[in-house]
Amino acid sequence: MEDDGGDPMKEAGILSTEEVKKVTPPIDRAEKGPVAVIECLEEIPCDACGWACPSGAIIKQGITIPPKIDYEKCTGCGQCVLICPGLAIFLIELVGEKARVTIPYELLPEPQVGQEVTALDRKGSPVAKAKVLKVLKSKDKTMAVTIEIPRKLFMEVRGMRL
């Protein structure tokens, strides 16, 4: 009932199919290694990701112009995941039948490497069991948690529950 009518992005806090397509990186790039997926499409006055990127892959043409990414320059380091104030940047990597998604996480308890968690989609619905592969923690306490999920869910899983 919350999704009725109008601009689906603004209405539900969930990207539309069209928008998901827009932010999906090239498959061959994601197969080479982790790459950033920027789910920030509004004209928010912010340029944190632009200057946090050490490889110049994130381009901000103006403070209120949404970021653009050069997938070839992106090294998948995850600095943007840790800094984005909107927690709107993720990393994805495709490895065979699996996908690895890195999610910004700011809740307790802290996920542990090897732990089994429930992968959630953009609505918070459970869609798969997942394994924690890596936990990166910034000094301001935001974590970037990499979980392994079935490959086909790489553009669906955006959250997790412990």
Binding site: G6, G13, L41, I44, L87, R122, G124
Partner: peptide
């Protein structure tokens, strides 16, 4: 309102934690 007034990214953050947003 028939739409979220705040930033989409703030809404997405709570949605993926399973919080429903009932518009109107």
């Amino acid at each position: 309102m028939p739409r979220i007034g705040g930033y989409f990214v703030h809404a997405a953050k709570v949605r993926r934690l399973g919080v429903p947003i009932y518009l109107r």
